[in-house]
Design a protein around this nucleic acid. Sequence first.
DNA 1: ATTGCAGTTTACGTTAACGTAAGTTATATT
DNA 2: AATATAACTTACGTTAACGTAAACTGCAAT
Lengths: 136, 136
Amino acid sequence: MVKETTTYSISELAQEFAVTTRTIRHYEDLQLLRPARQGQKRIYSLADRTKLKLIVRGKRIGLSLQESGQLINMYEPGKSNVDQLERTVQAIGAQRQKLAQQLRDIGTMLDDLDQAEAGCKAELDTSRRPTSEKKT
Amino acid sequence: MVKETTTYSISELAQEFAVTTRTIRHYEDLQLLRPARQGQKRIYSLADRTKLKLIVRGKRIGLSLQESGQLINMYEPGKSNVDQLERTVQAIGAQRQKLAQQLRDIGTMLDDLDQAEAGCKAELDTSRRPTSEKKT
DNA sequence: ATTGCAGTTTACGTTAACGTAAGTTATATT
DNA sequence: AATATAACTTACGTTAACGTAAACTGCAAT
């Protein structure tokens, strides 16, 4: 029975997530990824791909690379150390708080956008009507 | 009848939004705020305060200062220029797309956090039980 | 044999978003 | 009059997150 594992080259991942190879190597410098090697070449596993996906998603919602790194650690505690596990649970709670705040912020922004759009469309409407009236 | 207007000093705003005065002046350098002056001193209006609030909120969801600046412009088109108004409507649409994506990202992150927390708690549970069993 | 990729390392450069420090001014208080 | 407090300007420093360039290494196809 042969080991059949999915792997990726750096450029494959770069393409998939629309980042440069430099960026991916940079994440490795920061210890966010630890690809295997075949000689010099980096070989990325499915787990690596998942982490990268998480990082990219994190960036979209404004997380720093450091924060994404902490998230990654939360997802693989493994250490079984009680103290550490409890800290992780704490961190998860804190992260949830932040995300909840973001949800609120996005909500009010969407509302604001609605208002702004309505304002624009009203403006456009009156400016398209050659001579506007005062009361109708 | 006297003009009664609410104004703020730079340190008042700094306190309210938990930023430094340096930060607020920096936003002015970037043209995001244009406070009035009383001699040397900056006098912030309610509108300025609102803009600052928007910027701070923007930062929480990962907007750059430049992006927040664009948002501010969307909220006060005023120019009545049709072409410009249509561009603004476009920009509003684009911004909505981004926010929608963020909502999705946050959703999956919250799910992931749930999973991670469940994992941690399970671990904690078994590690607290002195001798664990294999099948129950 | 060489041309051309895809990948690698090393290292300096760049941009955004402030921090920090130094020296100045205005107002108010003791 | 002296001191404190809050503001101001100017300017250099710092951190994060890469960009960009140079020079090297396989491996494959012409």
